[in-house]
Nucleic acid binder design. Structure first.
Lengths: 368, 368
DNA sequence: CTGAAAGCGCTTACAG
DNA sequence: CTGAAAGCGCTTACAG
């Protein structure tokens, strides 16, 4: 830890008053102690080559001895860059968002950005404008919007890019077109892959438990399920569709309902692992054997999935990679927007979809 | 969203060049547009009372019309306060840390702080000094250290408070004494409560699966388990202690090992829900009935716990409250350290322990 | 290789 | 109620 007091003493600087807190060293004080201009100290801090080796070393020594830390706020003010990324995330108690955030943080730290974390608790009603305003006000260099699309909570993103003073990148798929670049998971492919697997396992009556209707991801997985069934010439009746809320409880309830309407149900695609867990739970209660009587597939591959009873077949998503990629892309956008670069290459809003992987375990019947 | 371009036009300001990005309004431009000094605009921004109503309204109108956002960096520089809290957290894929972080963020947002998030990936080896230096450099007003204590990774915290220029608050228990205030969960009480419950259910051979030995929390839960057994005059042989790594796999392995050494095992206290899940899994494979043959208790009350098979008895911790309290306390410390307050009340390092709650479900035998 | 001057965008006393 | 001056801690040209 930086020992301001002792260091000050050894550097021959005035000892901080006994008021304990507050007094921080400035570049000016370091310059005085070194007998140079603040200028030169600045060069050393920024590791510029044009400083006499001897001078460099003397200043560097004082800096380490005193534990002087340059004021990033002041630096940001002059440079016009804060090296802060505004990250807007959602419900860290959910698996996906927390994984994405981990990926973002790791890559950001690696690239020298610090993260300003902003959690949205209700994607539909929270005041997005105020949040954007506040991020803007804090001079973040770029924004990563890692909120699942729910309802119209991304309406603002359709505004023309001339109205967005800083680069914004979306994590997660977008429903409508947008002028913003985005990185997402191919949720439709998830639905297809899971359903294909259930069909290959001999499934004839394959139900889906979707996430909430207003969630775009939930809709995409549903579409994938439908695509797969239709590709095999199978009917797609409404009674095979149940809606959950991502929680295990809703998965359990959904299975009861589905079996009520379709007693011959032999397979279930649950749109996430928690709901799949609820399905397993309900099946146990009803005495249905898994996978013999009921083949089950989830999505997410949460850590516990391999220890469910039986272990759960599921779809693994590269969420951390998505987070890391988001940082890389927003960084590129930031560089592109640097005033130094007159070229002004227009940021081409593109959507990048990452692919997923089916993890086959014991809850689903093997292909035959 | 703030529409800089149109707003500028309507306010009679020069339109930003077609370079699209970058040009932001400053207080100076707003002042010119309003025909007042920057001063007065500043008063309006800060909602000071001493401005003529008419002037106030005129300026306010320009501000909202143009979408002018005061530069927080500049403001922080003059005020000597950044309104940023440095939060150091760990492994968001773990249940505890992500809950605590949610609590912190929510309370911080409520109190007007923004959060600078810093994740540590390996609590034992990551460079803590560098991280502290960087937070210091970014002028955070205070630091919340929400990393589980592992090994000696909190050695720095023992330094005298004179060497810490900003308030620091620890979330989680501390092994040794420290000069820092902290908020934690009473982990020993968790161990006691879980074990007492198992004893009440008729347990005679009660094993524990601990977390990694270097984790302080794991040690505390172990001590609680031991306390309870001893209080009932029961033996505490080493063969009833297994060490896990918090993951479900390790819980499964641990049960096999425990049964090997103590075939008459009738109860298991798993130090978290994931390991308890592993125990359930292993018991199913071995054909042991739960709770008749084996009574199981976990810790955390993760969302899935109520849907395990059978549903899991566990201990619920007020983690979000711990996070929220941390913000409240660090805010108090920040105010106390304000230069304006000459009183300089010494921050009394105190440790606050929050209590937990046993949630009884089907995995454990009822008291008799 | 080094320094004097000006400025980043705001706020804090201090006058009036 | 309002403004001119100085300053927060740094960096960016510009001289030498």
């Amino acid at each position: 830890m930086v020992n301001v007091k002792n260091a000050a003493r050894s550097a021959g600087l005035p000892e901080p008053a006994q008021t304990n807190h507050r007094k921080r060293l400035t570049i000016k004080e370091v310059a005085e102690a070194a007998g140079v201009s603040t200028q030169t100290v600045s060069r050393v801090i920024n590791n510029r080559p044009d400083v006499a080796p001897e001078t460099f070393e003397r200043i560097q020594r004082i800096i380490t001895d005193t534990g002087y830390a340059p004021n990033m706020l002041a630096r940001s003010l002059t440079q016009g860059r804060s090296h802060i990324l505004g990250v807007v995330a959602f419900g860290l108690e959910y698996f996906g968002p927390s994984r994405v955030l981990t990926g973002i943080e790791q890559q950001a730290a690696y690239m020298g950005y610090s993260i300003s974390l902003n959690l949205i608790h209700d994607p539909e009603t929270d005041d997005v404008d105020r949040l954007l305003y506040s991020l803007f006000s804090r001079q973040v260099d770029g924004i990563i919007w890692a909120i699942p699309e729910v309802g119209a909570n991304r309406a603002w993103s359709h505004a023309s890019s001339a109205e967005r003073p800083i680069p914004v990148l979306l994590v997660g798929e977008m429903a409508g077109q947008t002028s913003l670049p985005s990185i997402g998971i191919d949720n439709r492919a998830i639905g297809r892959a899971a359903t294909e697997h259930l069909i290959a396992g001999g499934g004839r009556k394959i139900a889906i438990i979707t996430g909430p209707v207003r969630w775009w991801e939930a809709q995409e997985r549903l579409t994938g399920w439908r695509d797969a069934l239709e590709a095999h010439g199978m009917p797609v009746p409404d009674r095979l569709i149940a809606t959950g809320d991502w929680g295990a409880n809703s998965g359990e309830d959904a299975l009861y309902r589905l079996l009520d309407e379709e007693p011959e149900l032999d397979s279930v695609f649950a749109s996430n692992d928690q709901m799949a867990l609820g399905v397993l739970h309900a099946a146990h209660r009803l005495g249905r054997r898994i996978p013999e009587d009921l083949s089950v597939v989830g999505v997410d591959n949460i850590a516990e999935a391999s220890h469910f009873w039986p272990s759960l077949t599921t779809v693994d998503q590269p969420l951390r990679s998505a987070g890391a990629l988001a940082v890389i892309e927003v960084d590129e956008a930031i560089r592109r927007a640097q005033p130094s670069r007159r070229a002004m290459e227009p940021a081409q809003p593109q959507m990048r979809l990452l692919q997923t992987q089916l993890i086959v375990r014991e809850s689903s019947r093997a292909p035959r």
